[in-house]
């Protein structure tokens, strides 16, 4: 363990590179044209934050931080499930409404 303390600068560099990648992920989330791109990049950010937290847990020698990492694993999965279910539900409802209107319009023309 004292080796980790002695060579702490390696972990600092790894943390800085991961933070830069996090910013790039955020840019991908902002640019992303469709909702699925944003969801994928938020998922990626969650994974990177989990690696950052476990490296911090190693440096600070605290096992307590890994619970946060576990919470993030579950939450990013839950967010994906909830958003996909809610979004497809809303989209299909809108589609059915449109088809109903189209059928009514055709019925009026035939009469």
């Amino acid at each position: 363990m004292e080796l980790v303390q002695r060579f702490e600068w390696i972990f600092h560099i790894i943390l800085i590179i991961l933070a830069l990648m996090l910013v790039l992920c955020l840019i991908r989330a902002i640019i992303g044209p469709r909702i699925a791109d944003r969801l994928v990049s938020v998922n990626m950010m969650g994974t990177m934050v989990m690696v950052i937290i476990s490296i911090l847990a190693l440096i600070m020698d605290e096992g307590y931080l890994l619970d946060i990492c576990l919470i993030y694993a579950m939450i990013s999965f839950l967010a994906v499930v909830v958003l996909t279910r809610v979004y497809t539900g809303v989209y299909l409802e809108a589609k059915q409404k449109k088809e109903k209107q189209k059928r009514e319009v055709q019925k009026d023309e035939t009469h």
Binding site: L22, C25, L26, A29, I30, I35, R38, L39, V42, M45, G46, V49, I52, I53, L56, M60, E62, Y64, L65, I68, Y72, A79
Partner: peptide, 23 residues
């Protein structure tokens, strides 16, 4: 889109809480 970015805001906010020694 703003909700998803709000979620990433709270992701990074919790790292900063860890750096401030308050897990």
């Amino acid at each position: 889109n703003s909700i998803l970015i709000f979620m990433s805001y709270s992701l990074v906010m919790s790292i900063i809480w860890i750096l401030l020694e308050s897990p």
